[in-house]
Simulated scan of single mutants.
Amino acid sequence: MKKSTIEKIIVKFINQEANQSELKALDLWLKNDENKIIFNHFIKTEYLIAVNLADYNVEKAKVSIKNKIEINKKKRRASFVKTISIAASIIILLGVSFFQYTNNNNTIENIATQKDFEEVSNRTILTLNNGKNISLDTDKKYSSNKVKGNSKELLYSSKNIANNTTKELTYNYLTIPRGGEFFVQLSDGTKIWLNSDSKLKYPENFNNGEIRKVELVYGEAYFEVSPSELHHGDAFHVITKNQEVTVLGTHFNIKAYKEDRLISTTLLEGKVKVNNGLNAILLKPNQQSKVFNKTNFIEVLSVDVSHEVAWIKGFFSFKEAPLDEIMKILSRRYNVEVIFESEEIKKYQFTGVLERKTAIKDVLKFFEATSNGDLKYTITDRKIVIK
């Protein structure tokens, strides 16, 4: 069976859209042990987040296929009505757009990487309190009496925090470029992951007896906050342009990009209070608040938190997301400009998971393939035109 054919069948199976003949073909294909390895690798991303990187059970999948075949024998499949949404499409790009099996060592060869597109800059800028900018270059280490790090992370020392009770705080900034990511551990032990096109303001150390404050100037950050009980009860606050989040030792994500019309705060565990200056709400785990820029309203909804923080595990995760929103996220990651020639194509929706190191050309090829010919694109330098 051709690779392109089996790819389409696997995608349909995951989306519960495969017909009886396709299910039979997949069942027959899986009788080959080598194909089981390919199958496992190809669909792994659909389950990575939900099962915390556990291996997908191929035998269980085969049982599911057989059950569906039996059901289809008894019941005619409902017809699929195409709408403006292509929500049935699923992105299964685990570093490849088309998989290749290597027979001599039973491994999957990654045949498409981000290098197929021009490499993006991943040079983070550290701005010190005196205004000096330090470029955290690749393969170079940075060290001072307060912090050590490299091009991927900074770790601040906690040696002086216990005696630091009256000193004036000195602040640093981290500016993450489009296409970059970064990790910083603050002097209190709080861990922060910064996404592409983000900027964080934070003190080099904290004063005992004072609120620990940092500012997400813009962008997206995931926080694992050192509990207040380890710091004499001192709370932790995160400030953004239109809200302030009060934390009591917790894991949460804040998305506050400059071009977005809202700020979203997603709580994984612990407690946070979101305040926009006029209203305040307490979030429970698995809840997300949305603070809209031009209103005083705070919306709270239940969400799949693993979907919201997939980026810190190295994945993009989309759930019925419109194409214009997807391309906005991808443009930050790959540092590209995206132009739509059609307003209608912006509304096309996709659901799925893809690895963040997947080449942008392979992502676009998959969108094109799953849109039934409705989507076309061109790439020139760092400009993508979607037609």
Rank of each mutant, 00 (worst) to 15 (best):
E59T: 09
R261F: 15
H232Y: 09
I360L: 05
P203Q: 13
N106H: 15
N32S: 09
A256Q: 01
N67H: 04
K132D: 11
N145T: 14
S151I: 00
E368S: 15
N164P: 07
Y56C: 10
I37H: 08
Y156E: 02
K271L: 10
D188H: 06
N286P: 03
S342I: 02
I263R: 00
N208R: 15
H251F: 07
K290A: 08
A61Q: 03
N106C: 09
V120M: 02
N293S: 12
S228A: 15
E153R: 10
S342Q: 08
P177N: 07
V51I: 12
K132V: 11
N35I: 05
T107N: 15
E17G: 11
K319F: 08
N207H: 12
N279G: 08
I161V: 14
F340D: 09
K24E: 07
E229L: 13
S226K: 03
F39Q: 00
N205Q: 13
V81Y: 11
Y56K: 06
D324N: 08
I192C: 04
A310Y: 00
E210Y: 09
L169M: 14
F318A: 00
L194M: 10
A359E: 03
V309N: 03
L28T: 09
L154N: 00
R333H: 10
S317D: 13
N279I: 05
E46R: 10
T170N: 13
L186M: 05
H251K: 10
D374C: 06
T358L: 02
M1W: 00
F340H: 07
I71V: 10
D260G: 03
L330A: 13
L248S: 13
Q100C: 07
L323W: 04
K294F: 04
I192H: 00
E59D: 14
N130M: 08
N106K: 15
K346R: 08
E320F: 04
T175I: 03
L23V: 06
S342N: 08
E109D: 13
L28N: 10
V245L: 12
A162T: 14
V303D: 01
T5S: 12
Y222F: 14
Y173F: 15
T295V: 07
I379T: 08
K258E: 06
A54L: 02
A280K: 11
N276I: 00
T380N: 06
D260Y: 06
S264H: 03
D137C: 00
G233R: 03
I84M: 09
I339F: 10
K313E: 14
V385M: 08
F315A: 11
S64R: 12
V147F: 02
K75Y: 14
T378A: 11
W193L: 04
N172I: 01
V147I: 14
I360G: 01
G314I: 11
N129C: 13
S228E: 14
N104R: 14
L323G: 09
P177V: 01
A321F: 09
N35V: 05
N145V: 13
L200I: 00
